[in-house]
Amino acid sequence: MSEFVASLNDALVVRSGFPLLSGVTLEVAPATLTLLTGPNGAGKTTLLQLLGGLVGLSGGSGQVCGVDLARDDRRALRRRVGWLGHDSSFYDDLSVRENLTFAAKALGRPLEDLAPALERVGLRDRSEVLARRLSAGQRRRLGLAWLLMRRPELWLLDEPYAALDEDGRRFLDGLFADVVAAGASIVVSAHDHLGATLGAVNTVHLVGGRVESRS
């Protein structure tokens, strides 16, 4: 059993003949926050997708939440991670509550978890609003409510700070701190550095699909 929630060794991801990630080695320990930085096209999103079982490993090896990325069915991994992409993650024609109800039922979670999740992200008063009518920041909060309900072992968030105002950023910093304190791990991509209140953050800088530096 690995001591890491996720570990990649010389990972390669190729799509349509083009290497999106090459020679990536990464370890994510339990209850840690890892920040992926890098310019556009550096491979941050692909790396998050690889960790979430959303793209396959083309070469190298890796395991995430006990699932071997090279050998096991990566669909088994998906239920164990929480994913928040930078695109809209919801059904625009369903309300906030309906979106979360769908997710809760799909995951077999009790519907009683909805209200605390909405309360935590500050969307309790918007629960009957259609997702298409939410602002970009509120949509981000809806995604976080989805993750809170899931309680995944590994949180994967692609540019979560985008479209958030200062309050939203502070809220996200606080949420991340709570999630890590509760024992889950977070891997997050961002152009900026995370909030100073977050404490220890492992930073991995990607360029051209490769790890250029880490700190």
Binding site: R75, A76, R78, R79, G82, D87, F90, Y91, G143
Partner: peptide, 14 residues
């Protein structure tokens, strides 16, 4: 089919 929705739904493991 939208990229974000597709990925989010995929992680539900339906």
């Amino acid at each position: 089919a939208r990229a974000g929705t597709r990925d989010s739904i995929a992680t539900l493991g339906l």
